[in-house]
Amino acid sequence: MIALLLALGSSLAYGCADFLGGLGARKAHVLRTVMVAAPASLAIELLLWPVLGASFDPGAIGWGAASGVASAVAFALLYKTLALGPMNVLSPVTALVSAALPVGVGLIQGERLGTAGLLGLPLALIAVVLVSAGHGAGSSRPSRTALLLAFGAGAAIALQLVFLHQAPADSGVAPLIVGRAVSTAVTLTAAGVLRRRLGREKPAYAMSAAAGVLDSVANLLFLIAVRSGDLTVVAVITALYPVGTVLLARSVLAERIHRGQLVGLGTAAVAVSLLALTST
């Protein structure tokens, strides 16, 4: 049950981070937003080091660095995917792949689910798609390139989660620190190479920094959750992060929640309840 609650917290934090990051990216080039968010994330993880401890053994460094590279790749592919559109088709594809691959890894590694879990898991995957999708999903069809990029983005997100799961359980926050340092270095390098394309608009500093802080919180909660529970359950609950984004968009931007998304929210509630039975 503790792992499930931590996964729910991780999902909510990821959703809030995406919402704030998305708003920030409207004001300036997305790399400018990340140039603020990434160092803010790293600062939070460094502050957690004396509190939660960190053991920088080869396993923590290797898996942490791998998660950082996957995070940077996921970011680049995700925004390229959404730029090509249509978002209401490609976003659920990305979310579904990011959930399904860790589930497969967990099952291959020997994790087993009871009856409630076997019912809750597919319901949660369905909820991910329904909540992620906007209205009019059938209005246009994505290109083959856009679909491949969506699968790639989802796979990169999934690999980031899997790599964090593989890090030694006694390494504390070391994998997060290493991963964030690597992803920050990759992002700053990309910003340097593309500096002429970034424009002159200043990023929303407070909003971008808040997104980075929330992303660190989400990563931390996920890491603790997978150390105390099954990757299959934690990954699929974490992938419900669009719920937080949708609810914030409704309350802050007055965006309408469409019928399919309402069904998705209800489906998510049922799935979480079933998975909670599995976790008790």
Rank of each mutant, 00 (worst) to 15 (best):
R195M: 10
A181Y: 03
G179M: 04
R197S: 13
A185G: 13
I177E: 01
G199T: 03
E201I: 01
S171R: 04
T187E: 08
A190Q: 09
L198V: 02
V173N: 05
D170H: 15
V182N: 01
I177G: 00
R195F: 11
V182K: 01
T189C: 11
T184A: 14
V182W: 00
S183I: 05
A204Q: 12
A169T: 14
G179F: 04
D170L: 12
E201W: 07
A174I: 03
R200F: 07
G179N: 06
V182G: 00
A174E: 10
I177M: 04
T187D: 09
T184I: 03
R200P: 08
P175K: 06
L176P: 00
P203A: 09
I177K: 00
T187H: 08
I177V: 12
S183K: 06
T184K: 02
P175Y: 11
L176G: 00
V186Y: 02
S183A: 10
P168C: 11
T187W: 08
V178A: 04
E201D: 14
A185T: 10
K202S: 14
Y205E: 14
G192I: 03
A190M: 12
A185P: 01
V173W: 02
D170W: 05
R200Q: 15
V193Q: 10
V182F: 02
G172P: 08
T184C: 13
R195C: 08
A181R: 04
V186D: 00
L198I: 04
L194V: 09
V178R: 03
P175H: 06
G199H: 09
R195T: 09
G199R: 06
L198F: 05
T187A: 15
A204R: 08
A191Y: 06
I177H: 00
V182S: 01
T187I: 15
K202N: 11
T187V: 13
Y205H: 12
L198G: 01
L176D: 02
A206Y: 03
A204C: 05
V178K: 02
I177C: 01
L194W: 11
S183G: 06
T189D: 07
K202D: 11
G192D: 03
A169S: 12
R195I: 06
K202G: 14
A204S: 13
L176A: 03
A181E: 04
D170G: 14
R195N: 12
R180T: 11
R196K: 13
A185S: 15
S183L: 07
R197K: 12
P203N: 09
A169R: 12
A169D: 14
P168F: 09
A185V: 10
